[in-house]
Every structure is written in C-alpha cells, then in structure tokens.
Simulated assay, not measured.
Amino acid sequence: MPADKDEGGWSSYLWNSERKEFLGRTGGSWFKIIGFYIIFYSFLAGIFIGTIQALLLTLSVYKPTWQDRVAPPGLTHSPRSEKSELAFNLNDVETYLKYAKSMRDFLEPYSDEKQKDPLKYEDCGPSPSPYKDRGDFDSDIGSRRACRFERTILGPCSGIEDREFGFKEGKPCLIVKLNRVVNFYPRPPTNNESIPEDAQQKVQPNVIPIHCTHKREEDAGKIGEIKYYGIGNGFPLQYYPYYGKILHPQYLQPLVAVQFVNLTMNTELRVECRVFGDNIKYSEKDRYQGKFDIKLQVTNL
C-alpha cells in the first residue's frame, strides 16, 4: 500500500484540500461526469416514454388490437363444483341444495325485473338470427344496448317454478354458457364432417349447436334422454359480438339448459358436452375450451 495512504493518506485521497479534489477529481470534472450521465439517461428515458406513448396511440380502450392468438371461448356450466363432479342423494336435501343455490345466484342477473330498462336492453327475437351490429367500437355512440334473455326460455331449468332445478326428482339441470370474448363472432358449422352423427340434426343457420353424450363407452345407454332448452337449443348469433365491459356493461350472454331426465341411478357417469362451429377449437391442455366433461352420480339408496 502507498505510504501516503498508510500514514492517514486515505483522508487526503478522499478530499485533497490543496488541489480541491474529491476522489482524485476536481469539482469541474465531477460536474461534467454527472452532467453527462444525467443527459444520457434522460435521453434513454425520453426514448422509452416516447415509444410507450406512440404504442398507446395505436391501441383502443374498447377493442383488443391483437386477437390473432386469442383462444376460442371456453364452455362452462353452472353449478360449478370441485373436480367437475355432481354427486347427490335424492333422500338427503343437503346434498343438492348447494347446487340449486349456486344456479339461482348465477341466474339472478337474468331476472326479468333487471332487464326492463329500454335504454339498456332490447328484444332480439325468439329464434336465432344473424349477428347484431351495434356500430364500430371507436364510434361516439357510447355504451350499447344488450339483447334480453328471458329465463323462461330455459323451461323447467329456469328456476322459476322448480327452485331445485330438477335435482329433487333426480333430473338435474346444467346451465351452460360460452364465455365472453370481445369482438368474437362465433361461426356456425358449414358442414357435418366434424359433428357426431346423432348431433348433425342440430345444425341450423344462426346458431352454435351444443351436444352432450357419454364420455366413456361403458356409459353408453346409461345417460338416458337429454333435453336442451334455449333459443334454437344452442347459442344464437344475435347475441354477438360482445363489446366489452365499458361499452356493454349490462351484456348477458345466451344460455342453454341441459337436463338429464333418465340417468342410471347409483352409478358414476361421465358426460361430455361440446359446441360446434367453424372457428371453435378444442384443446387437450384446456378442458373447457369449446367443451367440458363432468361426473354425475345420483343416489337413491
């Protein structure tokens, strides 16, 4: 170590009063160095902020700019349950009351009294019809009206007359929906090549058909009759597209009720439901993309 630092020279190295130097540099030298870094990093920050501002100018607060990688909507159901299992005993009310309550809560926004305002809702017809064009996303129209969806369309699965949704009689209902995707236009199937033979008769204009069947071959013949309730027994196109939470705050997506009226008792059954459309795909990684499967077990012992 240099002698001057051994003999207390560290203090003179930090501040040299004779040369007016701090850490070996004069005040003017330090001013130039600090000024350089301030200007340099301010320049970088300006480029970054300018780039972000330019990007924001290309984005819409209403409509996603890039949707080429957006997955098709998921197909989900109410009631939801742990591990997608619905198991209950006809002789024990407590085993299915939680399912019924979940469905009543889910359907609450669809109550007639909540869809009366003509400035927010409109009648879109009792049968499937083409897409409902409500103007461009960036127009000055503001929030858009939504199509009414009356619960009576769901028949015995509406929860109006039967508040247990068929569970009490061993004929449980599921309420099925396609999840919301902004500016998504579901396209009905144009042919029957990808549709099971027993579901092909459901193909019709202006509706996305849904079909449920046994998941396992050993359950064939045990599921019994399945009834569907909804507009066209599927998802009608007049409810699309969805304009997002800002422009479509009161939007209600269409629903389909699926009722199992003759399940084999005391047996675990696997059921799969799928929707069919030209731009609806399925994924093994996402069990709810365009389809779902559920375990059903009704006990009467």
Rank of each mutant, 00 (worst) to 15 (best):
D4G: 06
S11A: 08
S11T: 04
Y13R: 08
Y13V: 09
W15H: 11
N16Y: 05
S17Q: 08
K20C: 08
K20T: 13
E21T: 15
G27Y: 02
W30N: 13
I38W: 07
I39N: 14
Y41W: 10
S42Q: 06
G46M: 04
G46D: 07
Q53T: 15
A54V: 10
K63N: 11
P64N: 04
Q67I: 13
D68S: 13
R69I: 13
G74N: 14
H77D: 07
S78N: 13
L86T: 05
L86M: 09
V93K: 12
V93N: 06
F106W: 01
L107D: 01
P109S: 01
E113L: 04
Q115D: 05
K116H: 04
K120V: 10
S127M: 11
K132R: 14
D138M: 04
I141W: 01
G142S: 07
S143L: 10
R144F: 01
E150M: 06
I153V: 15
S158R: 02
G159I: 07
I160A: 03
E161Q: 08
F165Q: 05
K168T: 15
L174T: 03
L178V: 04
L178Q: 10
T190H: 10
N191T: 12
D198R: 09
Q201S: 14
V203I: 15
Q204C: 09
H211D: 05
C212A: 02
T213D: 11
H214A: 08
K215L: 15
E217P: 03
E217L: 15
I223N: 05
Y228S: 04
G232T: 13
P236N: 01
Y239P: 03
Y239F: 14
Y240R: 06
P241D: 07
Q259N: 04
T264N: 13
T264L: 03
T267I: 05
R270N: 13
R274S: 08
V275M: 01
I280S: 05
S283W: 00
R287Y: 00
Y288M: 07
G290Q: 02
L301A: 11
